[in-house]
């Protein structure tokens, strides 16, 4: 009969779409594994102690080692310390500020001013990282007379700030109103309530947000190219040019003699980022509101 025939067709197309959705979702996941495999299989060879203890070799030394068939000497210590320095500075700037702004936004939702701030936060969050690099260049490289770790951290701060503001705001919004009322009813001051009750109760969400923001800027390259520039030595002076792991990856990529180091540094970078993500997930699960 016509009806049952059309039902068979409809059921078949239903099945077909179901399998297409499964197939396409599966294909969408493949690149992750290809990338991980590529980076891990090529990077493990140079993933050794010297990667962490020695600075970047000169192109010449690497060329000689290549010619003799030796592994490339040196490591990325200057990048590791540089990443630590720049990111720590960015954390120092963005976390307190982000927390304050997040608290302000969640406490003053209805005010015009808060809405304007919230709108600008969205705008900042969508800003391309290269544009942020230009801004940090204009703000910190030019006035300070040169490339520096500080300028790099200014760029990363601009990136981290909106993420921390948003996660703080979202987390605090989810806290039951009764928390605040209970605190105020007990006679404690407003500031006390915010810092002793609201922030600790929202700790999980806020901390997760900070960790994710760190993991996001950890791999940023473009803004650092315009600000921190890079250096072949370990540098702890915030006013001097400084390297970072992603900057070194960029250097290695451009230098045929050093290309072997590209994979081990990428492997290290991915490991750091995934560990940060993993901790963020655990924190989010443990301190669920």
């Amino acid at each position: 009969m016509n009806i049952s025939n059309s039902i068979r067709v409809r059921k078949r197309s239903n099945q077909l779409v179901y399998w297409m959705v499964c197939l396409f979702s599966f294909i969408a996941m493949i690149p992750l594994f290809l990338i991980l495999w590529d980076v891990a299989s090529k990077g493990y060879k140079n993933f050794n102690l010297s990667l962490f203890t020695e600075v970047t070799p000169s192109s010449m030394d690497a060329l000689l080692a290549n010619m003799n068939g030796d592994p490339i000497p040196g490591g990325i210590l200057n990048g590791i310390t540089g990443s630590i320095l720049i990111v720590l500075l960015a954390i120092l700037f963005s976390v307190p500020l982000g927390l304050f702004i997040g608290i302000y936004l969640s406490e003053n939702r209805e005010r015009k001013f808060a809405k304007a701030v919230s709108f600008l936060t969205d705008l900042l969050q969508g800003m391309p990282s290269i544009v942020i690099g230009i801004i940090a260049y204009a703000w910190a490289v030019k006035p300070l007379g040169g490339y520096s770790a500080l300028a790099g951290s200014v760029a990363l701060t601009i990136m981290m700030l909106p993420m921390i503001v948003r996660s703080t705001e979202e987390t605090l919004k989810m806290l039951p109103h009764s928390y605040k009322e209970a605190g105020l009813a007990l006679g404690s001051s407003y500031t006390n309530v915010v810092f002793r009750i609201l922030l600790p109760s929202g700790f999980g969400g806020i901390f997760t947000g900070i960790l994710l923001a760190i993991s996001r800027v950890m791999g940023e390259t473009a803004p650092l190219m315009l600000t921190a520039l890079g250096a072949s030595v370990v540098n702890w002076d915030v006013l001097e040019p400084t390297s970072a792991i992603p900057l070194l990856i960029w250097d290695f990529y451009n230098d045929p003699n050093l290309v072997d180091l590209v994979w081990s540094s990428s492997l290290l970078l991915l490991i750091v980022i995934f560990i940060l993500n993993w901790i963020a997930k655990i924190v989010a699960r443990k301190w669920k509101i």
């Binding site: 690149p31 992750l32 290809l34 990338i35 590529d38 980076v39 990282s129 993991s215 996001r216 950890m218 791999g219 940023e220 390259t221 473009a222 992603p246 990856i249 960029w250 990529y253 590209v262 994979w263 990428s266 970078l269 991915l270 980022i273 995934f274 993500n277």
Partner: peptide
Amino acid sequence: GIPSIVYGLW
């Protein structure tokens, strides 16, 4: 979470 530069390499 994979950085842009690693995508570039790949």
